[in-house]
Structures are given as C-alpha cells and as structure tokens.
Design a protein around this nucleic acid. Structure first.
Lengths: 253, 253
DNA sequence: TTAATAGTGTCTGTGAGACACTATAGT
DNA sequence: ACTATAGTGTCTCACAGACACTATTAA
C-alpha cells in the first residue's frame, strides 16, 4: 500500500488538484518534511502489486527501494496512483509492466488498505493485487533492472516500509489457501515442467516437505496434467517426464 | 458499490472540492441529467455494506431504494462516502449503524470495485464489506424503517441497481467458501440456538439439504458447541437442547 | 560401477455420506 | 393415541498420509 518509488516531484507531477483547506490530524510530521498535505484533501487511491516468481529455485518477491521520505531507503512493494480512466486491474497491469515488462500473467485482487495515518503524508487508500509470473518469461529481462529494484526470497526478506511485511504474509496465506482447490500454482511454472518441479512449487509455498509418491498420485489422479512425451535431461541421472497443464480438464485440484 | 441513497443535493453537500477541468469520457449522460461531473476529477471512494440476517426463517439482505438518477427507484446495496478521518472499516460500521442501529457484528471486507464507467456520474471506487447480523438483536428495530429500506430473501431479489446482483452472488460464494472451515455461521444466530437452527443456517447458505445425523455428528465432534442445559420448547413435540458457541475451542469447523 | 534423480504400490486410519428408527413433548 | 420434531448408530467408500525399493541416465 502507499505509493512507492515516488519522490516528492513524482507526486506533484501526478497531482492535479488545487490546494484546499487543511485537513486536521497527522499533518505535523508531514509538514516537518516539507510535504504539502493540503493538496491531498481527498484520499489518494493507489494500487500496489505483490509480484512473485520462481527464481534460482526460490520463491521470490519483487521489491523497490524507496527514494524518499517516509521510509527512505527501505524496500517496499511496488505501486502507484490509479489513473482516472483506467480500471484498478489495468493499473495493476501497468505497474506489472513497468517493473517486469511482462504481460498476461496471473493477477488477483487481494485486499484494500485504507487506514488514515498509515502513510504520514496524506490519506492513501491502496488496493493490493498479487501476481504470479513464470520464471521462464521473466528471465529474459533478468538483471537489467536498476539498482533500486530487486527480487528477494519470500522467507528471507529485508526490513520493509510501511506495513508491507504484513501484506506479504497475507499474500502467502492467500496463496496457501488456494493451493489445494485451484490450479494457481501452475502460474509459477513454464508451459512444460516435471512433476518434481511442480512439487517444489507446492513445497515452497506451503513451506514444508511433501511426500513424493502421495503428491504424484494425487496430482496425476486429477487428470489436469498432460504428458508431453518429451523428457527433461539434466545431470547424470534418469531424465524426467515433462508435463503440461491441461486447461480442458477444468477440475479443481 | 457506488453511493446509494444520495440525491444530487446529498452529493453536493458532501463535496468539498472546487470545480476543476473536465474529465474526458462518460460525461455526456451525466451532464444531460444536470450532474456536474467536473467536480469529481479524482475518484470518489465509497464503502458499500452487504448486510445479511436471518428473518422469518429466511436468509435476507438489506437493500435501499434509490431516490435519484441513475437507477432511480431500483434497489441497491447501502453505502456512502468514506470520510477523510475514518478507516474503511469504520465507514462500514457507520453505514451499518445508520441502517440498522446495530453494533459489534461480524464485518469483513469483500472486494473493491473500481471500473471507470460503472457509475455514470463519475469515477467511483467502492470497497464492499459484508456483515452478518443475528436476528435477535435486529428484531428490536424491525419495521421502524422508512419505506425505502427493506429486507429481501437472498434467493428472491428484486432487480438491483448497478452490478449489485453480481456483488450479492460474490458475497454468497464467499460465505459458502468460509462455511466449512470457519465459525462464520454462528454470527447469524443468537447466543443460544438448537442444532436444528444451526443446520438451517447451513442449508440456507449452501442452498441445499443436509443430512441431519451427519451434520450433528460433525458439528458436535468438533467440540465448538457447549450444551447450555436449557431446552427450547415450542409446539407440540419434543423440546430441543439449546447450545451456545464455545469460543474457547478455537478449532476450525 | 557409481552417482544422482525418476518413478512406482500398499496399507491403515479418518472422514463423508447414505440410510431408519426411537424418544418426548403438547394436545 | 396422535402429531410433530428431537435425537441416535452403522456401514461403505474415498482419500490422506506413512513408508522403501527399482529404473535410467551420464560420467
């Protein structure tokens, strides 16, 4: 929540209102930092996007380093203002594109945070989305990012701005809850994958070991996987079958 | 979503901004109705509350009749603007109080709708909550409401304004999903209730018959119910035990 | 042949769901 | 005694989870 990666000039640029009468409360700290709160009489609406992906055999989340007060220098979930002529989801897609240059990924609205005082500058109402990107498409872009954008393992995070730690925990719980009655996990994998890779995704999200035989038995029995016939050879051992997700079988896992 | 029960004068009253440059798109129809869109350059943020309760052995939802364009005369989910100094949840509680004079009920954030053009007047971003009220406390107030506020059975609704029908379906699905792993259903019952009454709640929400023996077996085995010792006598038949919810047993159903 | 991962089947316990009769109150 | 609802037990089937060995490849 809150807008991140926005210097004061960024905010001014996107501000189209005239200054108005002051709003009472939680103004002093903002003013002390030279922030003109009076311009934000009405709540600002922003969209934050929790982007998760598999990188280096790890479940990781994309964060941006804040360049301005408050929480300057801390890492935060990327987000920005919602334009007047775009839907909330479009704003989330735009944010996704700006950070990763990736499109057509799994995107879901999570929760809306809007307590007064959560952002010391002004009243900000933030709609949080979360996105799951498959590692393959993402790797094209890889390390071309600026230094203030980076991926972090979800179980090994730096200190986060605002209450973004709470939001990430909320996200993980949502993901876990959906894991066994939806096909949400497939969004983290490329088109073809081995059962072992799928199992790793489940293990990382649930953050616990799963029995190999039981997992295979269960997944294959649902019929949502299709054997591609191809095999994945890597290393000095027996190659693994490659499967693909079969959307025709719209069963729930 | 969208603000309801607000005449044009209501909107003007709650409007504190100066007129600004016009916003492009979806303006003409609003202007034709004498609605000054230019005042709403930035999105308005409202909170709508889906209030459900058990009335006359029926699962019902509270609706208000719109008194102004658009959708004048149609029924809608009650809602209103979020004040600058109140949280989203506080706004929902306020709305709840205004409509039912009830406090301390189950309240949960559902989803946020914000497509441009959903409200022909201006861009409105609406955070939807839903509330479950127990019938006993509610009955005190009963029929003292104005004619433009009423309760409707959720499976027998009048035509609804905006896309409120979709929202109610969404609400019901959320309720159903939570039914078997939370204790959410107890919020619709008074402090003491019979197993039959509890079963009726489940049947109404799931909209299907449940086997009596299996239901009792399952519910009692969780240990979340406490026998009050009292019995409910009504009619010419064997009286039923009265139970109460035991919050100490924080198991999930 | 070794190293490293892929791939496979059985047993047991638990829970869901189908199903029908007895108990107890008012009249 | 009759009527109307409360209250109770068994069986079957499906699924979850524990558990250990064989198969196949590259080096």
């Amino acid at each position: 929540m809150e807008e991140q990666r926005m210097s004061i000039s960024d905010l001014q640029e996107s501000e189209r209102e005239e200054p108005q009468e002051r709003e009472q409360g939680q103004v002093s700290e903002a003013e002390a930092h030279g922030y003109d709160v009076s311009k934000y009489e009405r709540p600002s609406v922003t969209v934050d996007v929790v982007m998760m992906s598999l990188r280096q055999k790890d479940l990781q989340v994309l964060l941006v380093k804040r360049r301005a007060w408050p929480h300057e220098g801390m890492w935060a979930i990327p987000g920005g203002f919602v334009n007047m002529d775009e839907s909330l989801e479009d704003a989330a897609k735009r944010e996704l594109w700006e950070e990763t240059q990736v499109e057509n990924v799994y995107l879901e609205q999570l929760y809306t945070f809007g307590d007064p005082g959560r952002d010391p500058r002004t009243r900000v109402i933030t709609v949080v989305y979360f996105a799951l990107l498959d590692s393959e498409r993402l790797q094209v872009k890889a390390a071309s990012d600026a230094v203030d954008v980076d991926w972090f393992p979800v179980y090994d995070l730096p200190p986060l701005a605002f209450d973004h730690k709470k939001i990430l925990e909320y996200t993980l719980n949502r993901l876990r809850g959906k894991l066994d009655y939806t096909t949400i996990a497939f969004n983290l994998l490329p088109e073809q994958f081995t059962l072992r890779e799928l199992q790793r995704v489940y293990e990382m999200i649930l953050h616990k070991r799963i029995d190999k035989r039981n997992f295979r038995k269960k997944v294959l029995s649902t019929g949502i996987l299709e054997d591609t016939g191809a095999k994945k050879m890597e290393g000095t051992h027996r190659p693994a079958r490659l499967y693909r997700f079969n959307p025709a079988a719209e069963h729930e896992l």
